[in-house]
Design a binder for these strands. Structure first.
Lengths: 333, 333
DNA sequence: GCCATATAGGTCAGATCCCGGCCTACATGG
DNA sequence: CCATGTAGGCCGGGATCTGACCTATATGGC
């Protein structure tokens, strides 16, 4: 199969074998690699010298296996594992709520760059199901759009895409991407618009048909220097959001834990309740998060959220109403 | 730093450089690798012969970059990307709803096997936040328990762990793990209990302090042959679940899409409503899923779910009740 | 307690590969 | 048209790799 004469290729396949969570006797490795057992021992030595600790259990039932070291070894994945990782990263990057969004985006860009095309559509299929499932069918940004954009920004490549403005118009853009910024629950792209000759901010979930042009340009300095500040400053003009103020009957620590490092601040009121302040862009998201807290709470601030909670309450009551069960059309009003 | 005299190590770092989404001129690669440009060209050739298509753009502003080929190249990740991948896999494996659970579990086991300890606690910290955030704070199984168990099952290693029975008793077990099976929303371990000398099924979320013994045993044949059938057969005796029957005022296709490939069947009633049948183990999960559908629905079957929906409705109404806003203790009744 | 079987590693000789330096060919952008 | 990049052939000296010995040592089963 592979040319096992080449020590480098052999080391790679040896690594991939050792990453399987099982023990490999040296003789079997020798057979698989097509070399003598002595060479296998030498290769194992080489891996150890490279910093990848190959554990060996001695004795009659001995064997080799890869252990945790100080550096990550190169991951050698099969098709399904690759798809799983791509989908997993999509759920984290496409619905970011914790604090590793940028890293997951980098990893996703790195992965998409080398993803075989035969796996690409499988990833897409799973992604739709998984993301909508895990995130509560939010209208988040397409992870592959995110990945391509992040890659172009890192490579300083011009980017071409279609952008749907707030009014629903479709426009085509040619930009020099600078940085992706996460604000609230949405990704924004800070980029220099080549046609309009000015800096613009784009909502990534409104970008489609994204394709790198391949043209590299020297990176441009954004105005103000700090991309995040620039974006958050202009964000509210792009997407109207709701300011939330609520009282939650839960200790501040517990509330923060259940909410995750999500939007907003949590301030303790007393030992068993706290004040929640933050902003989000959809009422459904807010309502479901509050209800999933599993405790009593009061919503003070956005009247729309109060109205929406009443809507949900009414719907939940109708769902348990025996009267509407008989005549299906009764729920029309 | 690295011994760049070794061609194997050099190829690895070259791969890691090329995985960065940018273009690398050959001269810079030569400098970084500490070899002559001619050797870089030879190394690039070698990568291509190994099946990793290194794209090169010719001309004055040329350079090398790694493109998508037919096989996945070994992924070389930095710390943050590794953590992001581990967290992403945890959200998919620890809250499985789509159909790549087994693959994500394999990938997670592979990754945890070689995860440097310094990254381990960072993964743990993010995991708690991310999983509870994305899954709606379900009491799912600990992903690292899942990963260790999957690894032991793959390696045919005996496993020792503490198990909390339904009555709340803690027992210590020594088993030969056979397979992990996903049933409904929970992971189950089918294993041969060495002390009780019989096959047993364990809920993974009740396993703690899991540690492989390192003792390898020849794999045993499970009773019926098919692990999944065996588990689903005994599942209901382990965890009491709720049978759901509901009518949803949404076309069947849309309902299926919003519910994902989750548990249950969706049967169309007419063009704008359908019947939903399935089972799940927590009322919170069921209620939130139904409410997130964003449409009218009626719950027929589990009386507990009807009661829970009324509870939620009452809580939502109290949250918008101005009277209870003044006196905090008024919500006690 | 012994033996089979595993890892661990030293040594040697021959074949092979690797590397840098030099050369020419070719594509591209200013 | 020229500077600058990739592409690749050729050559010679030196380093490396491999298999085939060998011994030491740890472990589990009989």
């Amino acid at each position: 199969m592979d040319a096992m004469n080449d020590p480098s290729a052999r080391l790679l396949t040896l690594l991939s074998l050792l990453q399987t969570p099982r023990e490999w006797p040296g003789s079997e490795l020798a057979e698989r690699l097509g070399v003598s057992p002595r060479t296998v021992r030498r290769d194992v030595d080489r891996l150890r010298e490279l910093g990848y600790p190959v554990e060996a259990t001695m004795g009659a039932a001995g064997g080799y296996r890869l252990a945790a070291g100080t550096a990550m070894p190169p991951l050698l994945l099969d098709d399904e594992e690759t798809v799983a990782i791509a989908v997993g990263l999509s759920t984290v990057a496409g619905n970011p709520v914790n604090g590793i969004e940028e890293a997951s985006l980098r990893a996703l860009a790195k992965l998409e760059q080398v993803l075989p095309s035969r796996l690409r559509h499988r990833v897409g299929a799973f992604r739709a199901a998984a993301v909508s499932m895990l995130t509560g069918n939010g209208p988040g940004a397409d992870p592959s759009v995110l990945a391509v954009t992040a890659g172009a920004a890192a490579a300083s490549e011009r980017l071409r895409f279609a952008y749907r403005t707030r009014d629903g118009d479709e426009t085509r853009r040619l930009v020099e991407p600078h940085r992706l910024v996460l604000a609230g629950r949405r990704w924004y792209l800070l980029a220099y618009d080549n046609e309009r000759q000015d800096w613009r901010i784009f909502r990534v979930d409104r970008m489609t048909d994204v394709r790198p042009t391949g043209v590299r340009v020297p990176p441009r300095e954004p105005p103000g220097g700090d991309a995040a500040a620039f974006v958050t400053g202009k964000m509210y003009s792009l997407a109207p959001t709701y300011e939330v103020l609520a009282t939650v009957r839960l200790p501040a620590a517990q509330a923060a834990e259940r909410l995750g490092a999500a939007p907003g601040e949590v301030q303790p009121i007393d030992e068993e309740s706290c004040r929640l302040r933050g902003h989000a862009d959809t009422l459904e998201w807010l309502a479901s998060r509050l209800l999933l807290l599993g405790c009593e709470f009061q919503v003070h601030e956005p009247p729309e959220l109060r109205a929406h909670l009443r809507t949900i309450a009414a719907r939940a009551l109708r769902a348990t109403d025996d009267a509407s069960e008989r005549g299906g059309a009764a729920a029309a009003g």
